[in-house]
C-alpha cells in the first residue's frame, strides 16, 4: 500500500440527528452523566468496528509491547477514554466555553508567541483532546485558524464555527479548490496562529518516513514545510485528559539549529523529525489517549 493511501478517509462518525441532539443535551447535562451513557456504546463500537478495534489492539500489543490480555484491557480503556473525550467536546461545544480546570506546561512559550508580531503554527496530533484547546487556551491577542478535515454533519460544523468564533478561533475546512491554502498563508502573514494536525497523511505525497514507537511509518510534512518556507515557528501542543474535570496541556516549541543555505526540504524534515520524537514521548506516557483508529503503521 502506498503511504498516501493509508486508510484514514477523513470522515468523522455520527449522524446529523445524533450530533444535534448531543449538542442540545449537553447544555443541561453534567459530563459525568454523559460518560455513563457513552460507556454503553463502547461494546458496540468494539464489536462492530473491527478494523478500528484491531488498530488499537495492535498498537498496544506491538508498539507498546503489552501482552495479549493487557492489550485487550488497555484497548477497552482507550475506547472508554475516547468516549469521554467526545463527551467533553460536545459539552464544551454546547456551552461555548470550557468548564474544565487546566494545568499548562510551557505556557511561557505560548505567551511569548502570542505577544510577538509574527504568526506561528500550532502542531497537534490525534492524542488527547486537541479540539478543545481553543477553549482551554482562551486568549484575545491572536486569532487561531484551525485547519479541519470536515466529515461532520453540516449542522454540527456550522454550530461549531459559531461557538469557536466566540473563543477567537476560526475553522478552516480543507477544500478541493485549495482555498484553505490561501487562507492559512494570509493568516500567517497577518501574524495569526494556524493550528493543524501533523500525524495523518491526507492527500499529500510529501511525507517523512521515520521510526515511530519501534516501526517505520510516515508523517505529513505540511506544517513543517510551511514553517521552513515562511520562517514561522512551530509550537507543539498536546491536550491530555487527567480526570473527569481536569486537563493538562503540554506546549513545546519545535526548533532546530539554523544551517546556512539549507534546503527547505531538509529543514522541514529535521523539524518533522523533532516533532515525531516529542510525539513519541507523549504517546509513551499516555498511550490510552492515542486516538488514531486505523492502521497507522500499514501493518
Amino acid at each position: 500500500m502506498n503511504d498516501t493511501d493509508r486508510p484514514w478517509k477523513g470522515k468523522t462518525g455520527g449522524g446529523h440527528f445524533g450530533q444535534k441532539s448531543l449538542i442540545f443535551l449537553f447544555k443541561f447535562l453534567n459530563v459525568r452523566v454523559g460518560y455513563f451513557f457513552a460507556a454503553f456504546a463502547i461494546p458496540f463500537y468494539m464489536l462492530f468496528g473491527r478494523q478500528s478495534y484491531l488498530a488499537i489492539y495492535h498498537f498496544f500489543n506491538q508498539r507498546i509491547s503489552c501482552g495479549k490480555l493487557t492489550s485487550f484491557f488497555k484497548t477497552c480503556k482507550n475506547y472508554f477514554s475516547f468516549s469521554q473525550i467526545i463527551v467533553d467536546r460536545f459539552s464544551v461545544l454546547a456551552n461555548g466555553k470550557s468548564k474544565f480546570s487546566v494545568t499548562i506546561t510551557g505556557q511561557e512559550f505560548f505567551e511569548h508567541y502570542i505577544n510577538s508580531k509574527k504568526g506561528f503554527i500550532m502542531a497537534s496530533s490525534h492524542v488527547g483532546n486537541f479540539e478543545i484547546s481553543g477553549y482551554l487556551l482562551h486568549q484575545d491577542v491572536k486569532k487561531i485558524n484551525s485547519l479541519i478535515y470536515g466529515g461532520e454533519a453540516p449542522v454540527f460544523q456550522s454550530y461549531r464555527e459559531k461557538q469557536l468564533e466566540k473563543n477567537n478561533v476560526k475553522s478552516i475546512p480543507v477544500t478541493d479548490d485549495l482555498s484553505h491554502l490561501f487562507i492559512i498563508n494570509e493568516a500567517l502573514d497577518n501574524g495569526e496562529i494556524v493550528s493543524m494536525p501533523c500525524d495523518r497523511l491526507f492527500g499529500s505525497n510529501k511525507y517523512l518516513k521515520c521510526d515511530f514507537l519501534g516501526k517505520e511509518t510516515s508523517f505529513p510534512l505540511g506544517a513543517f514545510r510551511l514553517s521552513a518556507l515562511k520562517e514561522v515557528d512551530i509550537l507543539s501542543i498536546f491536550v491530555i485528559k487527567l480526570s473527569a474535570s481536569h486537563y493538562h496541556i503540554f506546549l513545546k516549541p519545535i526548533i532546530t539549529d539554523c544551517i546556512p543555505n539549507e534546503s527547505m526540504k531538509n529543514k522541514s524534515e529535521r523539524l518533522a523529525f523533532l516533532y515525531v520524537n516529542h510525539l513519541e514521548t507523549i504517546v509513551k506516557k499516555y498511550p490510552e489517549q492515542w486516538f488514531n483508529y486505523y492502521d497507522f503503521w500499514n501493518n
Partner: peptide
C-alpha cells in the same frame, strides 16, 4: 508535474517572495 496541495502552498509563498504579489484561489 504531480503538484499537490502542499506544493501549492510553497508556490504561493515563493511567488509572493520573488514576484511581490499575493495569489488568490
Amino acid at each position: 508535474l504531480g503538484i499537490d496541495s502542499l506544493d501549492f502552498v510553497d508556490i504561493v509563498v515563493i511567488v509572493e517572495k520573488n514576484f511581490g504579489f499575493k495569489m488568490n484561489a
